[in-house]
C-alpha cells in the first residue's frame, strides 16, 4: 500500500516537472541564466517620404537571435543578446523597390550584403517575471557599420516562452547612408522599427527535439 503511494508520488513529480519543462523556460530567482533563442521573429520597418501619400513599409519574418535570460533580484535580466535579420528577407511587397533598398541601403562598397546585426551585453528590466519593460542598448550593424542603438521592448511570459515586442528608430545618416531617392520621391532619414518575437528556451527545444544542448 505504502509502495503504491510512493510510486504515485514519484510519477506525479515527474509529470509536474515534465509539464513545467514543456510549458516554458524554467526561471528560478537566484539560479543561473536560461538560454533562449528566437527563430522566425517579425521585424517591421516604416519610413516616410517627401510625398505625403507615400510611405514605405517592409517586413521580415526571419529575425533570429539568442540571449541569456535570468530572473535576478530586481526582476528579469537579459545578457549576451545577439540578433540578426538577413537583408534578403526584407520585403516591401514590390520586387523593384526591394532591389533598390538592398542596393542603396544595405550593399557595402565591396558589393557584399551583410545581415543586419544587433548585439547587447546586458539589459536590466523593470517589472515582474511575467511582464517586464526592458531597455536594450547595444550596437546595430548595418552594411557592416556598427553604431550605438537602443530599443525598448516589453517581454511577456507566455506558455511557449517570452513574447518580446519593441519599437525604435534608426537614422540612416548615422550610418552614412544617403536616403534613397527615386523619380522625385525621397525617403526620410528616420526609419521606424518594430519587432515582435517569441523567445523560447533552448533547453525546452532540446528536450522536445532530442537535440543535446
Amino acid at each position: 500500500m505504502r509502495k503504491a503511494r510512493d510510486i504515485r508520488r514519484t510519477l506525479g513529480a515527474i509529470g509536474a516537472l515534465t509539464a513545467a519543462m514543456l510549458t516554458g523556460p524554467v526561471l528560478v530567482a537566484g539560479e543561473g541564466a536560461d538560454e533562449t533563442e528566437v527563430r522566425g521573429g517579425v521585424a517591421v520597418f516604416e519610413v516616410g517620404t517627401n510625398i505625403r501619400a507615400i510611405r514605405v513599409h517592409g517586413k521580415s519574418n526571419a529575425l533570429q537571435g539568442r540571449a541569456l535570460v535570468r530572473l535576478g533580484p530586481d526582476g528579469l535580466a537579459i545578457d549576451e543578446l545577439r540578433a540578426s535579420v538577413p537583408v534578403q528577407t526584407l520585403d516591401t511587397g514590390m520586387s523593384l523597390r526591394d532591389g533598390h533598398m538592398r542596393k542603396y541601403i544595405f550593399t557595402t562598397a565591396d558589393g557584399r550584403l551583410p545581415d543586419l546585426d544587433f548585439s547587447a551585453t546586458n539589459a536590466v528590466c523593470t517589472g515582474s517575471a511575467d511582464r517586464a519593460d526592458c531597455r536594450l542598448t547595444g550596437q546595430l550593424t548595418i552594411r557592416g557599420n556598427a553604431q550605438p542603438f537602443t530599443i525598448t521592448v516589453v517581454a511577456t511570459r507566455q506558455s511557449s516562452g517570452f513574447r518580446v515586442v519593441g519599437d525604435s528608430v534608426v537614422r540612416l545618416s548615422s550610418y552614412g547612408i544617403e536616403p534613397p531617392s527615386q523619380l522625385g520621391v525621397r525617403t526620410e532619414d528616420e526609419v521606424k522599427l518594430h519587432v515582435d518575437v517569441v523567445a523560447r528556451s533552448v533547453r525546452r527545444d532540446a528536450l522536445l527535439t532530442g537535440v543535446p544542448r
Partner: peptide, 12 residues
C-alpha cells in the same frame, strides 16, 4: 500618372 506613379506602374 505622376512620374513616380509611372515607375510603380512599370514595376507592377
Amino acid at each position: 500618372l505622376t512620374v513616380y506613379g509611372r515607375g510603380i506602374d512599370r514595376s507592377q
